[in-house]
Design a protein around this nucleic acid. Structure first.
Length: 172
DNA sequence: CCAGGGATCCCCT
DNA sequence: GGGGATCCCTGGC
């Protein structure tokens, strides 16, 4: 399976009250304090996994949360994993639009993927480059948080239908 | 040991 | 548009 990254949020580490790293280096958050390029997967609301990539040097927290992908390869497999029947093109947004959805589509779990090296294709889960050049990146506030809720740290491709909430939530 | 909260999703109205 | 599901992690006692 493969998807293009169309929506992310930045979490700035220990000083960011909305970041998990604000709790310090604990059993749960230790990947965030490790070297860059590793998967931080957490379980939320008793139902969903979400995927981050660590972004700062060893010892310093800071990460990017993946909030939406545009499905590229393995759409039937994603649909099975999500228990979605794709009747029309518009059904595709149910596969990977949202952090919990994209994790389910890819079968990402904390047990399997937390701490894996996202820079290595051999990891099974990895971030690659296909020559696509993102144009029209827009910013907004981060979604679903109560602390530091005004910071514009959400980045998404304007007009891309796979952006969660249509990209319209609390713009600017 | 236990209570509370959480970077969500889905279904119902 | 609103509420319930559902469980892991953390911190306080």
């Amino acid at each position: 399976m493969a998807g293009r990254i169309v929506e992310v949020e930045a979490y700035l580490g220990e000083k960011d009250p909305a970041a998990h790293a604000a709790a310090g280096n604990t059993m749960r958050t230790r990947v965030l304090f490790g070297p860059p390029g590793y998967a931080y997967v957490y379980f939320i609301y008793g139902n969903h996994y979400c995927l981050n990539v660590s972004c700062e040097r060893e010892g310093k927290a800071g990460s990017v949360l993946f909030r939406a992908l545009e499905p590229l390869l393995g759409i039937e497999e994603m649909a099975r994993a999500r228990n979605v029947v794709v009747h029309a093109p518009r059904d595709l947004v149910k596969l990977t639009s949202g952090p919990g959805r994209l994790a389910e589509a890819f079968g990402i779990t904390r047990e399997r993927d937390n701490g894996c090296d996202l820079t290595q294709p051999a990891s099974g889960l990895w971030i690659g480059e296909d020559g696509f050049f993102a144009k029209g990146i827009q910013l907004s506030c981060r979604i679903g948080i109560t602390k530091a809720a005004e910071d514009r740290l959400r980045y998404f491709l304007g007009g891309n239908i796979f952006v969660s909430r249509g990209g319209a939530l609390r713009p600017s």
